[in-house]
Amino acid sequence: MSMDEKKIRLRLEHISQSYVVKNEVRCAVDDVTLDVYDNEFLVVLGPGHCGKSVLLNIIAGIEKPVAGQMFLDGGRLLKSDERIGMVFQKLALMPWKTVMANVEFGPEVRGVAKGERRAAAQKYIDLVGLTGFEKAYPNELSGGMKQRVGIARAYTNNPEILLMDEPFGQLDAQTRYAMQEEIMKIWEMEKRTLVFVTNNIEEAVYLGDRIVLLTRCPGRVKQVYPIGLPRPRDTVDPQFLRIRKEISQNTDLAL
């Protein structure tokens, strides 16, 4: 089955974003048109400050673009939508709440009954490997564990599309590898449409069904790479390295 026959979940048309800083217009995202297919793992790859995060924020409804349209399952997307969840780059946990309270926050504010939301939260706490830490506070957790809480929280909202904004960017290299494997495992168990932003080529090739390469600021789509490698992928496999090289020769990444 080729990509074209797949069902399109999310469509971005000519999305552009700019900011005015001290009377000077700065473009962050320029004319991005993109389709995201059902249950695909899409990686948005680009250099630092190229507007990747801005693009995710726009999809999540956190900011409004200056131009362009978005469609979710064919319907216009104009603001934050419960069908779209997000894992943030910064460690975005409420320090005054326990792991459980952080994870069940979404269903709680939507008024889901306690028993039901507890069960959902517990399921994803178990899935990300934090069983036994339900009553711990974020300050007691390591960086990797905090990010697991963030992932469990996003899943507990039961979104159809999950956005991940450089979720492993602040982790040390070893934890990062472990988390990449972890996220792959979770994605295979709980299929969702995933849009994953990163500036790390290896991470992109390891995770993505497709890689959307953005240019340096303002972010434009430079090229789209379908990655046909079987999973689990081996980062030192010749095929893997070939793709990695091909992409790195085409990027504006300073590597």
Binding site: A60, F88, M94, F105, G106, V109, R153, N157
Partner: peptide, 29 residues
């Protein structure tokens, strides 16, 4: 109040008033 936490609450589907008393008030303590 951390903008990231406000964004988290937004993507969780919280209204502005909910964000005010669930995120803003504890942050101000």
């Amino acid at each position: 109040t951390s903008q990231v936490l406000i964004n988290v609450a937004k993507t969780c589907g919280a209204s502005n008033f909910t964000i005010f008393y669930r995120i803003g008030i504890p942050s101000s303590f």
